[in-house]
Simulated scan of single mutants.
Amino acid sequence: MREWTHAEHVSAAATEIARMADVLRGREMSVPVLTCPGWDLARLVTHTGGVHRWAATMVADLAERRYDRRGMDMGLPADASGYPAWLGAGAALLSEALLSQDPQAPMWTWGGERRVRFWSRRMLHETLVHRMDAELAVGIPTLVPEDVAADGVEEFLDILPYALWNPGVAELRGGGETISLQADTGAGWVITLDPDRFHHRRSLQPGSVTVRTATSADLLQVVWGRRSVDDYAVEGDAGLLGWWRELARI
Rank of each mutant, 00 (worst) to 15 (best):
R115F: 02
R115L: 03
R115H: 04
R117E: 15
W119M: 10
S120P: 09
R122E: 10
M123V: 06
M123R: 05
L124W: 03
E126K: 13
L128G: 08
L128R: 07
R131C: 13
R131K: 09
M132A: 12
M132I: 10
A134H: 01
E135T: 04
G139W: 08
I140T: 10
P141Q: 06
T142M: 02
L143I: 13
V144A: 12
D147L: 11
D151L: 07
E154N: 04
E154M: 10
E155D: 05
F156G: 06
F156K: 02
I159G: 11
L160P: 01
N166K: 02
N166M: 03
P167A: 09
E171N: 13
L172V: 07
G174E: 02
G176A: 04
E177Y: 09
E177C: 14
T178Q: 13
I179V: 15
I179W: 00
S180D: 01
S180N: 04
G186C: 15
A187R: 08
G188D: 05
W189I: 10
I191D: 03
T192E: 14
D194K: 04
P195M: 08
D196F: 03
D196R: 10
R197H: 13
F198H: 09
F198Y: 13
H200R: 14
H200F: 15
H200I: 13
R201F: 00
R202A: 00
R202P: 00
Q205S: 14
P206H: 10
G207W: 09
S208C: 05
S208G: 12
T215Y: 02
S216G: 12
A217Q: 07
D218N: 12
L219M: 12
L220Y: 08
Q221D: 10
V222F: 01
V223W: 02
V223P: 03
W224L: 00
G225Y: 00
